[in-house]
Amino acid sequence: MRGSSFLEKASSELPGAIIGSNLEAIDPWIEVVAERIAEVSQWLKKTPESLFDSLECITAIDWFEPDAKKAAKVQWKPHIEMVYHLWSTVARASIVIKTNLPRWKGDVVGQLPEIPSVTGVWRTADWHEREVFDLSGIFFIGHPDLRRILCPEDWVGYPLRRDYEMPLEYHGIRAR
């Protein structure tokens, strides 16, 4: 069961959750509603045909151009794209889930955008989500232990945001 038939099944069993797809891309992907990511993940993991039992990677892509001149030319509106790469050790197939988030919750700068955590589906998501939280500033609802993982705990800012500016100094150490 590949491609379109799988997508149809998913759409019928999860009405309204899947809002887009591209099966012709280099890595075929489906787009889901951000609020329902955990539900879709659970379905993808449990569906006998796919059994996407392994979460490989969570990436947050910041679509934001800080340079006003360049920003005028781009096609997209500023947003954050979450990309989940799944792998099935049974079917030896992969799938990509994409979902869009606002850059800041309610467009208030400093309020982290929220998305349900998938730690309940794959336990490996624990560290991956902490990393995304740490570097890209996404808040995962329901994560058991959402702390910074790679940066120091008192670090300010989210380095992988496109508008991030390195602090001048950190505890007296010149940083820039």
């Binding site: 891309a25 490989e56 990677c57 990436t59 990309v83 992969s94």
Partner: peptide, 20 residues
Amino acid sequence: VGDAYLETECPRGQMGFYLV
């Protein structure tokens, strides 16, 4: 324009790179 994700079998496991 586009993205690609690839995992390879490195000595320590599956190392994945994602490129947009």
